[in-house]
Write a protein that binds this DNA or RNA. Structure first.
Lengths: 204, 204
DNA sequence: GCGGAAGAATGAACGTTGTTCAAGATAGAA
DNA sequence: TTCTATCTTGAACAACGTTCATTCTTCCGC
């Protein structure tokens, strides 16, 4: 190997994250095993801890990737629609919510691990991870500023959070399937109803 | 000991469930350790598995209790209000949502374990656990039948699920506090806005 | 080129888990 | 009391994340 070490470590980190992503996509976060990953990328068990502090960091890195792809999906959904009138804003919010649903369904295990991350009680999540999350809220916040321009900004942010959370809840329960399976189109309809109703409720 | 065996096992199961509940309430599901529990109720490690099949069953039993108490909380909130007019129905839905929020906040770790249960992929959850969940939905469904009596029943059930899920999402994200802490009163206001808006959207 | 220091790779070993099981203790019927 | 069925026990096992002394590589100043 004649690649410089720092480059090599970069490559190893990428390979490790790839392997972790693959494992999670196949079997959820429960199948993120140190020994499996080490053999996946052809290193010894202990070598993992030269690349990454612990498995939590690895899960966080995979989550960051997932959030990135989710952000792109929401951006794509947003950019496909005009944003001029208030009606546009509502339509865009519906489109974002639908894109969220489809991303979650299409990346079920990776999407779920976004919320299964349990950082050790005291420790806050790294800044770059927090940024990823805030970026998502902005997708919702942007149409809201058009929809209710008179509302003060803190309230707008809060409303964006609430709307996001509500849709997230519907998607979560809808994709659970533990109790009853809801058809995708029914889920879409429910989301649309709720988003439109919430928007009408915002204008008072 | 002169108590009949079956009685004794019953008592052991109760003591074990108590201990598990206490442990979870203190440190979340991550602190449900076989050895701790065995010593809590004064039996040998292996003895646990004469009382309970595995720790998952124990977590499920604790969850069942929690669901029971949650159901009582929602019932109390419901019964405090009249249910005659459509306005009553909306008020009741708001009250239920608020009661849900307060229960979650007041029983944070126990409430969270309700959704952290990961049954082994294939296995469905026991019937008695499914019943507990359906009973919850009925709290929401009942006012809905008054609010939109013309809607067919399947649609009503779906709407109840959606409304529940939306509120659940808001509560979940609101109590997360990982990103930003939302004051409880702000959370209440957000929930009320969303529930009222959703109800108005239902009547179309 | 080269020799030594700094760092990385290795896999055995540790500590903690949940779960099992052969052996011993105990309860209830005869 | 005695016998059998059952429960209880804690040592043992397997799987896990993580650490560490040892060995090998790589890099830099000469």
């Amino acid at each position: 190997m004649n690649a410089p070490l720092s480059e090599r470590r970069q490559a190893q980190l990428a390979a490790l994250t790839d392997a972790a992503e693959r494992r999670i996509a196949e079997g959820g976060m429960a199948s993120l095993k140190a020994r499996d990953l080490a053999s996946d990328i052809g290193i010894a068990l202990g070598g993992l801890y030269n690349i990454v502090a612990d498995l939590d960091e690895l899960a966080l890195r995979v989550s960051s990737r997932t959030l990135g792809r989710l952000g792109e999906a929401l951006t794509a959904a947003s950019d496909a629609l005009p944003l001029e009138s208030k009606a546009d804003a509502v339509n865009r919010l519906v489109a974002i919510a639908h894109a969220y649903l489809h991303f979650a369904k299409g990346n079920l295990r990776l999407w779920r691990t976004l919320f299964e991350l349990r950082l050790a009680e005291g420790t806050a999540l790294p800044a770059w991870a927090a940024d990823d999350q805030l970026r998502l809220f902005r997708h919702v916040a942007e149409p809201l500023t058009l929809l209710v321009p008179d509302m003060d900004e803190a309230q707008q942010t809060l409303a964006a959070r609430t709307l996001f959370a509500a849709v997230h809840g519907i998607v979560t329960l809808g994709l659970e399937e533990r109790l009853v399976a809801v058809p995708l189109t029914a889920l879409e309809a429910q989301i649309e109803w709720l988003v439109r109703a919430a928007c009408r409720g915002l204008g008072e």
